[in-house]
Design a protein around this nucleic acid. Sequence first.
DNA 1: CGCGAACTTGAGGCGTGTCAACCCCTGTGG
DNA 2: CCACAGGGGTTGACACGCCTCAAGTTCGCG
Lengths: 247, 247
Amino acid sequence: MDEIVFRPLHTVACKVRCSSCNLREICLPVGLTREEMAHVDSIMVVGQRKVARGEALVHAGDRFDSVFAVRTGFFKSVITSSPGRQQITAFQTSGELIGLGGIDTGRHEVDVVALEDSQVCVIPYGELEALGRAVPSLQRQFHRHLSREIAADHEAMMQLGSMHAEERVAAFLLNLVHRLETRGFSSTSVLLRMSRDEIGSFLGLKLETVSRTLSKFQTDGLLFVRQRQIQITDPVGLKQVLEPAAA
Amino acid sequence: MDEIVFRPLHTVACKVRCSSCNLREICLPVGLTREEMAHVDSIMVVGQRKVARGEALVHAGDRFDSVFAVRTGFFKSVITSSPGRQQITAFQTSGELIGLGGIDTGRHEVDVVALEDSQVCVIPYGELEALGRAVPSLQRQFHRHLSREIAADHEAMMQLGSMHAEERVAAFLLNLVHRLETRGFSSTSVLLRMSRDEIGSFLGLKLETVSRTLSKFQTDGLLFVRQRQIQITDPVGLKQVLEPAAA
DNA sequence: CGCGAACTTGAGGCGTGTCAACCCCTGTGG
DNA sequence: CCACAGGGGTTGACACGCCTCAAGTTCGCG
């Protein structure tokens, strides 16, 4: 009811430059030369958008015309088929691209919701395509991002299809911590941005099972849990949860 | 022990032309004009390769330098993490691309195995990239294929994460039949190319559960099963398995 | 300070996994 | 042409992991 009313609903027409972004080593333009990045900056109009916690960045069914790169914050992508049936397909954080599943049909296939106040770059897909033709290494990086999402989805399928609850939760935590570590955060301490229910939706488990599993890990001395704050005390032990029969 | 010995292990250096391929309306070059397709034919060296039933097209860890388009036959893509833990991530048939998950790392992440004697086009990735720059609509189609795989993986995650056994099997059959229908096959009759065990691996179920579920569908009058031959007698009923509470 | 949402923990039920026996189909060799 | 072997498929009995339902606690936010 307050400031939300005044915030524009769509893209802020404020130009953002990749070359001066602190995510340039993680995000779309990884590995571009200074000149290439300057070229990208000069041609591609990248807008910026803020999304408040709980708000949707895109809705399923929306026309697809841009991909989004997370600058700051945390998002979930949720697919809904039959009413009531929902599945979180990914959690995205800084430097990760959102909306890639919509290129094919021209419509977004997921709802994307901010889990905390966040900021994204809005990258018009048409411009990205055109610029990819002019800057091969940008094209290459875009393809790598698409491919990375495919490989990540396969890993998620592996977890959903062939792991027990403890293994799924362990894999989830290790994956999350690893991604955060790449971004300069602690490798042993995480503040979860998502609820137990959301973790469960991603892992194909109920929230109670997630909660119980975290409690068990604490009992087993692998980590400390206090609500959404997690401190991993035995990273090796946590990895061993994934090894079927350790020596 | 017979002719297999004489079949070259790698790509047959035989040029294949997209323009004269009967899959051109389904495969990578969908929607290209006659001129564009001629251009593609003249530049891109697409090899061909035969893969016998049970043989691997690629192994996980292999250097990635080509994507493959299925011409004829059927494949499974299997990801293996910890020894013993396996997950089939997809079944591919004619017109579908294989190996897209390997672009990012430069190594294939899956084993791809033929489920019947098959033929693929070998599309060198470097050439595809270059040609995409020259032919925008080819680039667009390639992106759409990448995006389609992402969306398909999300659908698979939805099945694995939030459906019961009956729903998964029904969704699997409907998806399979739909894809085959697009290729001109019957929408009610399928000859499964994969074993119960392989279906189970894809769906996150045990082979016994797959078998039981198919039997139950038969008892319920939705279909006839005889080994790998399936005749869908009540397509509407089968779809209703996916609707939580039908009227 | 108090309400509601999120989380934890317990008890019991159900769906799918496990283990095992049997059947069917195919291919092979006598 | 039949016997046999073997892999794939079916079916049953039972076990167990996760879900369901429910009560109680903690935390965050207005």
